[in-house]
């Protein structure tokens, strides 16, 4: 899973004056034609750096994203839900593996990336810093957080970097299972007992503010980078992604008879855009900087997993093999 709340580094100087102008022109022409850039191709330093940053954050979001839903693995109700949830959370771990691999083709090893995650240097999607109190929270995540992730991932799959796009193609195929499974769970809650409906509504109320944050700060206050758009690193503005999500899923939530805790939420039929109460961006900043309800636990879990796995990896270090970046 993955939010557009990517923290792109503010680009002070793009360093393009140091790049070979002829190669740069070829590179841009290739992207313009809609062709993919492959690891062996020439690319500007800035492109490499921003891609590593973005794909790495995406990968971290998958591995950390496995935790809130993982909360319910041992207690999912019944065989069908249990098998599905296990497979779903497993997929998220698999997505992390695919994405770390894609980032590795750009020259940063997986170990360095995981290191940066657990020492707090790099970010992951904000939404996973919130807790899954009940089974209904897990249903919300599977359906709607994944739906948000799919909006982003489908857009990014049309980006310019070959290995990232290929990873996203595999990921999106699996996400369609997550989305359908999650929707199925929520429908079941909606059409169940009064208690089940109440639980689901409560989960929607809890998760709506972080869901709005998911796509990142509004275009009015976020750092734009025309160059990242031109290079097809960033494929759409945060507000566009948020609007797409609202357009696709708000009607589906309403159709199940649930309410959304924002009285200003409505579609402006003239502009075709959704209007809503401005999300609390101070809260967003606070949580992304470490002060959310679960930041500490999420990182502690990841770090504990790494520490406890240390002796295993040490026992696997073989003098006959050697780390190299993956090929594609």
């Amino acid at each position: 899973m993955y939010g557009g709340g990517n923290t792109f580094e503010h680009i002070k100087s793009n360093g393009l004056e140091n790049e070979d102008p002829e190669k740069l022109a070829q590179f841009e022409a290739r992207i313009e034609r809609g062709e993919k850039i492959e690891p062996n191709d020439w690319m500007p330093q800035l492109y490499r750096k921003q891609l590593i940053r973005m794909i790495e954050q995406h990968a971290h979001s998958e591995i950390i994203g496995a935790l809130p839903e993982g909360t319910w693995i041992t207690r999912a109700p019944g065989f069908k839900r249990k098998l599905a949830l296990m497979a779903k959370v497993q997929d998220e771990v698999g997505h992390a593996q695919l994405l770390y691999s894609a980032a590795e083709t750009l020259g940063k090893s997986r170990e360095q990336m995981i290191d940066d995650l657990i020492n707090g240097k790099s970010k992951y999607s904000n939404i996973f810093n919130y807790p899954a109190f009940t089974w209904a929270d897990s249903c919300f995540i599977s359906w709607l957080v994944d739906a948000g992730a799919i909006v982003n991932q489908l857009a990014n799959a049309r980006g310019s970097y070959g290995p990232y796009c290929r990873a996203l193609d595999r990921i999106c195929a699996e996400e369609s299972f997550h989305l359908k499974y999650g929707h199925h769970c929520v429908i079941h809650m909606a059409t169940g007992t009064e208690k089940q409906r109440e639980m689901m509504q409560a989960a929607i109320n809890r998760w709506w503010p972080p869901m709005m944050h998911f796509f990142g700060p509004s275009d009015k206050i976020s750092v734009h980078s025309e160059i990242l758009m031109r290079w097809k690193v960033k494929m759409g503005s945060n507000d566009d992604m948020r609007n797409q999500f609202l357009d696709m899923y708000v009607p589906k939530i309403w159709e199940l008879g649930f309410t959304i805790p924002d009285e200003n939420l409505r579609k402006n039929e003239v502009t075709g855009r959704w209007e809503y109460t401005e999300p609390d961006w101070e809260e967003f900043k606070r949580v992304i900087n470490g002060d959310g309800p679960c930041n500490k636990e999420r990182l502690a879990v990841r770090r504990t997993a790494e520490e406890r796995g240390r002796w295993v990896r040490e026992a696997l270090l073989a003098p006959k093999t050697e780390y190299v970046a993956p090929l594609a």
Partner: peptide, 29 residues
């Protein structure tokens, strides 16, 4: 075994071990 999903010693093994936990639950079903 499903308790290891997300906590495994390396990503690839996390995935493999989770599949086998799913097989187990599926076989019991």
């Amino acid at each position: 075994n499903s308790e290891w999903t997300g906590f495994g010693p390396l990503l690839e093994e996390d995935i493999a071990f989770s599949s086998m936990a799913q097989d187990k639950v599926g076989q019991s079903y």
